[in-house]
Amino acid sequence: MTTMIEARNVEFSFGSTPALRGASLAIDAGEIVAVMGPSGSGKSTLLHCLAGILVPDAGEIHFDGARIDARSEQERSALRRERFGFVFQFGQLVPELTAAENVALPLLLGGVRRAEALRTAHGWFDRLGLAGLEHRRSGELSGGQAQRVALARGLVAGPRVLFADEPTGALDSLTGEQVMDLLVTAAREQGTTVVLVTHEPRVAAYADREVIVRDGRINAPDRVAS
């Protein structure tokens, strides 16, 4: 197995408040890893550092064998757009666009023609059990439907890594598990590596393994152990 994405001794502070103090984590290609930890432990910050949203104060981030934390904001944006996918807790759908257009958005941003992008997007609706909801606006979707649309948007461009930050945080447990089930199934089919930030054990149980972030450090047995 090759390492897909890796944090090496990453440190990050919000002003004078340290969030990460030397966090190290390596994730294999195709692996689904749950990042757990109590509130304020720095797990979201770790995800943001891994995804190139935040630049670590110290340490390195490697993606697919290359260091990415030293790249420019523009390059990291392009990387996020082209190689990464994202699912957030809630509210990532643009309210003006239909569900299908929201799913097609990453493709449109990547320069894919509109008709083609929409065709690809429609394919995901069947896959995620959303058929018939293509033309709804985000305000007309239930929480679970909206998260499934968000999941489709996160995966539509065929990302190498999917970053999911509390993807079920705003859902009830049954709906949340449906979303997780779809997420894991789709990620496995595509061979997508998944970084899943959650504080819920039942959500983390969908992952291949978990790491615990505590006080800005990662408390995890080596991969070999699991």
Binding site: R202, A205, Y206, I212, S226
Partner: peptide, 16 residues
């Protein structure tokens, strides 16, 4: 506690 958590999660993964 960490060891226990890991064991629990491992079991949860199996059950999942």
């Amino acid at each position: 506690l960490d060891t226990q958590r890991r064991a629990h999660l491992q079991r949860m993964r199996e059950l999942t």
